[in-house]
Design a protein around this nucleic acid. Structure first.
Lengths: 193, 193
DNA sequence: ACCACAGTGGACCAGTGAGTCCAGAAAACA
DNA sequence: TGTTTTCTGGACTCACTGGTCCACTGTGGT
């Protein structure tokens, strides 16, 4: 499929329009027709740019959103080299999900597209990169003598990822952000002790 | 709606059949017709026992499954009064979800029924009870002098819930149970330190 | 025995949503 | 300018699914 400049623009418009839609208001089911209406496109265009239909489109949107997740945590996530930096990172995560509220674009995508290999790959890749940043942060803190050597960086980073994911999930279902805060605060406290 | 013994049995058969179906194999979308076929019932019966249709039925199944979640952790969850008890509880949680694998009946239900008030109520109620048991365990350990007084029982219990939820979610998408283990181990370690 | 009501089966309906198809407009390119 | 390819619009098909309806059967009470 050779794309001209116009074609690329349209394709991008579809992805970003769909992403914005998911971010603003997460209906139970997102249909191709919703996306078509919102992005001002036609059925023909959607299937022209995403020949495999819904799954391919949703996966593209998911990749787009996955990129944002880590970007929104920068530059803090990439430089967890002091307790102050950890605090700023913690705040940025809380702020991000507080702003997002109950609408979780990635979550919505996942529940639509199901457990296809492509979908799990997108999420796994995101979680891996995320965890790796945290792990690096812990290791740097250890090297600086700010975290005791007994802490297992990889395992603790995994606990962070789990805590954040669970906190976000509780936020999605109950609307309360306290669990996310509790998870982050408790684990940072664990590092400090 | 007055139910005879036969009626009650049929209703229960529908709920348990649906629950078993979700537990054994979690398809992307569960239809009423699937449930009808599996439970050997007819459309008429389903709407006779669940006049509000799909949502009412799924909510009933969700409540049924939510009950199992805590039951499966007993008696450990109810008596977190020693480090050995905490270890047994940790193992029972890991074993339960390891056995369940990627199929999360409650998760499947939630992604189908969406964010209706009834659905959030079922999950919130489950999470609250769960968290309360953990909080009680922490408080008892503090009273026994086994956990330092500086630990905030409520907040730490919330972190446990978040960590478990996130660990299960990672298990669902990636198939790996390490995050769940990491979350539990790290938080228990936090209590011990 | 009778009757009222619960239980059961399944045909049927209507809305919906993914995906197809093709005709025509707009670019790219020679 | 002509032609080939990409882009766009929208009508249409087709399958599926939740839900309705109603006739028929079983059962418990009097």
């Amino acid at each position: 499929m050779a794309l001209t400049a116009k074609g690329r623009a349209t394709r991008q418009r579809i992805i970003e329009g769909a992403a914005a839609y998911l971010r603003s208001d997460e209906p139970a089911g997102v249909t191709l027709d919703d996306i078509r209406a919102i992005t001002g496109t036609s059925k023909g265009q959607i299937f022209h740019y995403f020949p495999d239909g819904k799954e391919e489109l949703f996966l593209a949107v998911a990749r787009h959103e996955a990129g944002r997740v880590l970007d929104d945590q920068q530059p803090h996530l990439g430089a967890l080299t002091s307790w102050a930096a950890w605090g700023r990172w913690r705040d940025s995560v809380v702020a991000r999900y507080h702003a997002q509220g109950r609408n979780c674009p990635l979550g919505a995508l996942m529940s639509q597209v199901g457990n296809t290999p492509g979908a799990t790959e997108v999420v796994s890749s995101l979680l891996n990169r995320w965890q790796f940043h945290v792990q690096e942060g812990i290791e740097e803190m250890q090297e600086a003598g700010l975290v005791r050597p007994g802490v297992d960086p990889q395992k603790t980073a995994a606990a962070f990822i789990a805590g954040i994911q669970g906190g976000v999930q509780v936020l999605r279902t109950s609307g309360s952000i306290t669990h996310l805060e509790a998870a982050l605060d408790t684990l940072i406290d664990y590092l400090k002790n």
